[in-house]
Simulated assay, not measured.
Amino acid sequence: MSELIPGATVGVVGGGQLGRMLAEAASPLGVEVLVLDPTPECPASPPATDQIVADFDDESAIRDLAARVDVLTLEIELADPEGLREASAETGTPVHPAPADLETTRDKLAEARSLADAGIPVADFRRVDEDDDLAAAFDVLGTPLMLKARHGGYDGRGNAVVDTISEATTYFGTLDDLVAEQLVDFERELSVIGVRGHDAIATYPVAENRHEAEILRETLVPARTDDAVHDRAEAVARDVIAQMDGRGVFGIELFETTDGEILVNEIAPRPHNSGHYTIEGTVTSQFEQHVRAILGHPLGETALRAPTAMVNLLGTGEENRSATLSGVEDALAMANAHFHWYGKRDVRPLRKMGHVTATGSGLATARSTANAARDAIDFE
Rank of each mutant, 00 (worst) to 15 (best):
E280R: 03
E380F: 01
E3H: 04
L350W: 09
A180K: 00
G30K: 06
N312I: 08
F56M: 10
F138N: 13
S368N: 11
A213T: 14
M21F: 03
P121N: 11
V13P: 11
T225C: 13
A358P: 03
D185N: 13
I120W: 15
A123G: 12
D57P: 01
N312L: 09
I76K: 14
K352V: 10
G92L: 04
A268S: 13
M353P: 15
D199E: 14
R345L: 01
S322D: 15
S114R: 10
Y277H: 04
D346L: 09
T258M: 09
T282V: 04
V236K: 12
F125V: 08
R68D: 05
T219I: 02
I52S: 09
V221A: 05
A26N: 11
P81G: 10
D57V: 04
V311I: 08
E103L: 08
A160T: 03
G248F: 13
V195I: 11
V13T: 12
L72N: 12
T39V: 10
V31Y: 01
A160R: 15
G119T: 02
A66F: 08
S368K: 12
K352C: 12
L304V: 03
G152Q: 02
P269C: 02
T316L: 00
N320W: 01
E189A: 01
T219V: 10
K344N: 13
K148F: 02
G360P: 03
R196A: 13
T369Q: 11
E280T: 05
L295F: 06
P99A: 05
N265W: 03
R247H: 11
P144D: 13
N336D: 14
D37V: 00
S361C: 14
I262R: 13
T282A: 05
V328Q: 14
L102V: 08
V161A: 10
L74Q: 07
M146Y: 00
A54W: 13
G158R: 09
D107T: 00
T104W: 09
G260A: 13
P205S: 12
M334A: 04
S114Q: 07
G30M: 11
T104D: 11
G92C: 05
M353G: 15
L72E: 10
A242W: 06
Y342P: 14
R305K: 14
D64C: 03
I294A: 15
L74M: 15
L147S: 03
P205M: 08
E261G: 10
D107S: 00
P99Q: 04
F287S: 02
A309S: 14
P97I: 07
L102G: 00
